[in-house]
Write a protein that binds this DNA or RNA. Structure first.
Length: 412
DNA sequence: TCTGGGGTCCTTCATCGA
DNA sequence: TCTGTCGATGAAGGACCC
């Protein structure tokens, strides 16, 4: 589901010497759309867009037939429909995608435990340790493609290289339904003709900044002194990009990356300026975040709120608590304080969000009551709510203020 | 044209204590 | 005692990723 610009196809696969190429990047092709077509085979070969039409939604995924009209993921649905009015629009079913994603990850784990998922539809694999058992990396990549196709009837693309970042570029280069090996001694030859925007970490803004400096390709970038890049892009980004331009990327495949924050946000169907309605939404989001914290065994110390005005300008406000929490009421009270302190009363908002950062394991954080403080009992109440939800479903229990329609006059 | 939702990481600035 | 410096931490914003 890459949303970066398509880089031009290379004419040659640069041979197939995969010695020194233990890293695989596996990327499902048009994942959500492909999963939907499993149940709708009559739509194969036609333009299909996954997204919610009408509302303020964006395209989540599109078949390659729709992409030919200029449709791509993250594009506003209204624009996508103008570009491709014939497209069949299917609302997303995240549960279905998660199920296929789990199955695909199982296939990866049967190859090697060194699997680093990047998203539901892509992962890095380090197959260095699987060679003796399963053969060369390119052969392992082909085996994965065959297994995914056989089990789910969908295709994926595989990049094979000596580093994560080159493997990722390679998989993008051979999409859809391809496999590309970038040999260790062909990295510079592979990278330098690519546009700078193809690099991981170069988005629109950075690309514009680089183009202003006359840097259009990775090769151009490689010839610029590191100090210049650091001055223009900042210390970290400058150093990082200078290394990438020469194919240097030492990052290892890391199977377990701990969560650093958990949040939830929602765009209103129409802008809202009623503080009561905004506080109700903050409560709903706090409930969601707290439930996910508890489900993951996390507590967090910093609560932040995100407030986006109707003109899309966005502010965030955060507060670090004395003790970490996974209690919705504590998160909600803090979020309301932050909202009040932001001084946006009666300002029209299009989005609000709640996030908890500074996470740690709930089991490693014994809560310390200060002198005179009384345990509120909210934690116990919310754990009981978790049990009810697990047993009777998500609508089994909710705060009284959320029993009313979510937004005044708009029940969504 | 009009921009979702879930994240990570970096930079800058302010504050505080040693 | 005062001042300057340095590092840690927190807060805010922004760019980027899928």
């Amino acid at each position: 589901m890459s949303r970066k610009q398509q880089v031009p196809k290379v004419a040659s696969a640069l041979g197939a010497d995969d010695t020194g190429c233990p890293i695989l990047h596996v990327d499902m092709d048009a994942f959500y759309a492909s999963v939907e077509l499993i149940e709708r085979p009559e739509l194969v070969g036609t333009p299909v867009i996954i997204g919610v039409p009408g509302l303020r939604g964006v395209v989540l995924s599109a078949t390659y037939e729709a992409r030919r009209f200029g449709v791509h993921s993250a594009m506003p649905m209204t624009r996508a429909m103008r570009l491709c009015p014939r497209a069949t629009v299917i609302p997303p079913s995240h549960g279905k995608y998660a199920e296929v994603s789990r199955g695909v990850m199982e296939i990866f784990h049967a190859i090697t435990p060194q699997v680093e998922p990047i998203a539901s539809d892509e992962a890095f694999l380090d197959v260095g340790g699987a060679r003796r058992r399963l053969g060369r990396p390119a052969a392992i990549g082909e085996a994965i493609r065959a297994q995914v196709a056989e089990r789910y009837g969908i295709t994926c693309s595989v990049g094979v290289a000596g580093s994560k970042f080159v493997a990722k570029l390679a998989s993008r280069q051979c999409k859809p339904n391809g496999l590309l090996v970038v040999p260790a001694d062909g990295v510079v030859q592979f990278l330098h003709p690519l546009p700078v925007g193809a690099l991981w970490g170069v988005g629109d803004r950075t690309e514009q900044a680089l183009v202003r400096l006359g840097i259009r390709t990775v090769g151009d970038l490689a010839r610029v002194p590191v100090a210049t890049l650091q001055r223009e892009l900042g210390q970290a980004a400058g150093t990082h990009l200078a290394a990438l331009a020469w194919g240097r990327d030492e990052r290892a495949v890391t199977p377990h990356v701990p969560d650093k924050s958990i949040g939830a946000e929602e765009t209103f169907p129409a802008d809202v300026d009623d503080p009561e309605a905004i506080r109700r939404e903050l409560l709903r989001l706090s409930e969601r975040v707290a439930a996910r914290l508890r489900a993951g065994g996390h507590v967090g110390r910093t609560v932040s709120v995100k407030l986006r005005r109707s003109d899309f300008s966005t502010i965030t406000r955060s507060r670090t608590l004395r003790e970490p929490t996974d209690v919705a009421q504590e998160i909600y009270v803090t979020a309301c304080d932050l909202f009040a302190a932001a001084g946006l009363d009666r300002v029209r908002l299009r989005l609000v969000g709640v996030r908890v950062e500074n996470l740690r394991g709930a089991d490693t954080s014994a809560r310390q009551l200060t002198l005179g403080e009384r345990e509120t009992g909210w934690r116990e109440v919310e754990r009981a709510m978790d049990k009810a939800v697990r047993r009777f479903g998500p609508d089994a229990v909710r705060p009284a203020s959320l029993v009313r329609p979510k937004f005044d006059g708009i029940d969504v």
